[in-house]
Design a protein around this nucleic acid. Sequence first.
DNA 1: GTCTATATGTTGATAGAC
DNA 2: GTCTATCAACATATAGAC
Lengths: 216, 216
Amino acid sequence: MSAQAGQKQGAPDELAASAGHETAGRLLLAAVEAFAERGFHATTTRDIAQRAGMSPAALYIHYRTKEELLYQISVFGHQRAIRVLGDASRHGVTVADRLAAAVSAFARWHAEHHTRARVVQYELTALGEEHYAEILTLRRRAGDIIRDLLDEGTAGGEFQVADIRSTARAIMSLCIDVARWFDPAGSDSPEQLGRLYAGLALRMAGAAEPPPGFGA
Amino acid sequence: MSAQAGQKQGAPDELAASAGHETAGRLLLAAVEAFAERGFHATTTRDIAQRAGMSPAALYIHYRTKEELLYQISVFGHQRAIRVLGDASRHGVTVADRLAAAVSAFARWHAEHHTRARVVQYELTALGEEHYAEILTLRRRAGDIIRDLLDEGTAGGEFQVADIRSTARAIMSLCIDVARWFDPAGSDSPEQLGRLYAGLALRMAGAAEPPPGFGA
DNA sequence: GTCTATATGTTGATAGAC
DNA sequence: GTCTATCAACATATAGAC
């Protein structure tokens, strides 16, 4: 795969652009692919540089360490995922609509960006201590979005949830795990998956089923 | 942590025993911990040997390669998880009871054995091609257990599932992801988690809610 | 079966030319 | 800003003594 693999023609990648420098952005995309395939620790700086079409030394002009690459990917990925989740969670009149929109968007993000989601969700522990703590703060924000929706829906009688904290965690967990198994060559599109997961989340929340013919 | 970390006093570990030789078993347990902490590729044979209290060379008396250690862990772990799932799935009169039992047991296994479950579920891709294919066959069997239950319940009118294949995958996915986040120091016990997840799975399957006071 | 010692290659990161 | 060349540390796996 080339350094631009996964990059749609003419659609500038946000992650690459976030680096501020063209070469730095290319290295960032190369690192995502390498980390997703082999994991952070097993990825060599040589591999990253090679995927970006550069010499091993070039990496250190743009990033102090290999860990800094992971950190940039992690921060940006979390920010995007949380934004997608948060925006969708304000998109709807009823709480059920908003939960469905939030879950649909979050699951869909993990399917569409499954490669970088894999790095974002599974390589966290390779971060340095300070960077790790910083990311955990971001993650708490994401969990709170779902929990607030369950809180609101339960208080208003639209949802029936015995354990809000655990149920919110389960819904997040369901969406996150998409990054592990999703295969773009499989039969489900990210959109279909999002719709399906929205329905599952509503059921998990004990929301009243829509009458047949509505939704689904 | 010592090589016996996680090992309850006097309770012989099945995984260790499966090696057939005491030292080989100790190396297997050491490898599980190392792979879970750092990932397969990033784990050194020195680290494994050291955790088992042996010299680096001792590993190669019992295992030809580092990959063979992962393979043994993977086969045994999958066999156990599938057995736990399959046994529970025959435990109940109604389909709903059996689905609840299966999900409860499967989620609980991932919580109780979260360290080895992490290796089993997330280090698959580090296996050699043949070993990987072998494990995939095992995994398909696990997925089929849940799918068969959804099939049966839907045919009998007890469940309401639009997309059986995807819903079965989602239920499996929910349980598997427990290995990623479960913290034994957290507030939920594996048993509580199993109960909660059984209820969530029933809802995902569109099973009729038990009247208040029954179950939950 | 376990050890010490080591062969052979690779690693993250740097030095210095251009 | 990028390259080639390189360092010191570390990797997997093996040889041979006990």
